[in-house]
Design a protein around this nucleic acid. Sequence first.
RNA 1: GCGCUCGUAGCUCAACGGAUAGAGCACUUGUCUUCGGAACAAGGGGUUGUGGGUUCGAUUCCCUCCGAGCGCACCA
Length: 597
Amino acid sequence: MQDKIKNLIKDALQNLGIEASEIALEHPADLKMGDYSTNVAMAIAKNVKSNPKDLAKKIVTEILRLNLDKYIEKVEVAGAGFINFYLSRKFFGNSIEEILNQGENVGKNEILAKEKTKEKIMVEYTDPNPFKPFHIGHLMTNAIGESVARILEHSGAEVTRANYQGDIGLHVAKAIYGLLKNPLRPENSGHLPLGKVEEGGGESVSVLAQHIGKAYAEGALLYETDEAVKAEIDEINKKIYNRGDEKINKIYDWGFKVTMDAFEDLYKLLGTKFDFYFLESQMAPIGEEIVRANMGKARDPEHGRRIFEESDGAVVFKAEKHDPKLHTRVFITSGGLPTYETKELGLTEDKFRTEPNLDLSIIVTANEQMDYMKVVAKAVSLIKPEHEKKMFHISHGMMRLSGGKMSSRKGNVVTGESLIRDTIALIGEKMRERDWDEKEKSKVAEMVGVAAIKYSILRSASGSDIVYNVEESISVDGDSGPYLQYSFARANSVLEKAKVENILPDPHAFPGEVFEVEKLLYKFPEVVLRSAKEYEPHYIANYLIEVARVFNSFYGNNLIVSKEDKNSGYKVALTFAFSFVMKTGLYLLGIQAPAKM
RNA sequence: GCGCUCGUAGCUCAACGGAUAGAGCACUUGUCUUCGGAACAAGGGGUUGUGGGUUCGAUUCCCUCCGAGCGCACCA
């Protein structure tokens, strides 16, 4: 449709003897101003020495003369010289029919399927560290990464999901120190932040992981304040590296498994299934080898300098020599240990070894890591330019807390895990009156709770920080994930009723008027496309909220299922179309759509 | 100090250089014997941080200043 209108405008201009290179066609902000709108008249008025409004009128006359498409109802000049196109009843009926044919495939496109081969994309996200709590930042990268992965799949790419975790390092030593101090035994389970131990028998991995999180916090605190403890933790750190101490090995292996299992439970809840797990300990040697190989002999062709050099006993990369906005970073410490930068280098290499035909490697992290990611990318561009061209970094804002002190509850910080559990509990409370099977209820509460959190992350552009208000908690009405799910569940029960009353969807039985929902539904594929091109899920989130609002309004003002109404079949078709768009849209955000809630 | 990101209603956020800057929350009022009230209908609330510039047109692009967040060598 878009192309049709563009061509129509082009033809009209040509007949008027006017050259126009690019024709901007957009949807007006207000539905009253038509379905498509162009500003060509204003843009070129100056060149042809005419006032925009007169020019617009001329163009419209020419368009009308060129014979209208059956899908275009009318064309008007408005405002300062806009040309607005109104689509016909038939067009909307048609678009509803199209959505019904596509079902949950609605909005699919093939921009990432070049010449019938799918583009291979790896998305790395979440990246929590074993022995540390799953915090709110991990929740953010997970929500964004999963959504981006799904959007790219919907655009024809073959996506693999990767997770990268710091399985060694000082943080592990701190946690193990804490665990040595407070071993986990039944008699001193007073150390546990004990709520109830879930589901029978022994402690769940979730509770055990919380215990490890506390141990880490204690170790981290004492590391800063107590010299003796600091020395002790440094000693533990060495033992972890060389695996020389049997007791520590045992605790390490146990703790690693517990935290990784606890993460896995969360991924399941959040709807993520990873294809690859990369571990820092394994990336380190790969990175070190690259660094060593590029000292001395290897040269940056452009500047003729060594890429890595020694400085104060450490191996550094002076990125500012290549780009004044970058800075020097240490790759190998004076103590001979590889830093995160080196491991990142190894990770990049390992990703391309794992997936040799990778077309694009996307990494999702918080923007606090932006600058050093740029330094690493610069290093990669000098060592393996072919890899650097295939790397893309999505950096998102941080989740900040406002409204009251977060520690005011149980003297605890809000971790990602506790936020999820609290939100689900809140939803469960809201559903208490429902006389459903308990298992079903808690399943739905999980879906709704996760939706509330994911939506609150994905509703705004991913670059900026988002503020989470502890006191008001995550929103469940109005502009929220549950609102989207609710409108879907509602549509679903209307469709159930239609089934019972034996009213079949009929996209041809349309009434004279065009409902506002229809004016939004056909835009879904465009929105998906934009999200895919910009790696920005929030366009979909904003779109869905608008559609949901308009559908709820339609629902409120119309009796959809009615034997008396000859247009009922059309309204049912419309409701079907809405439910497909909503379900698919939610899926792209990584949110499930329960049939009832 | 340097670099990056940002500043929109009381709060949280939208607006691919376009038309009267839009939503939700909160506040005020109305709808409840129709398919799900996690809803619908309506109302008040704005000099888009400041001052310039580019443009037919600027919340959007450029510059000044003010303010915030993040990052700037052996942590990740």
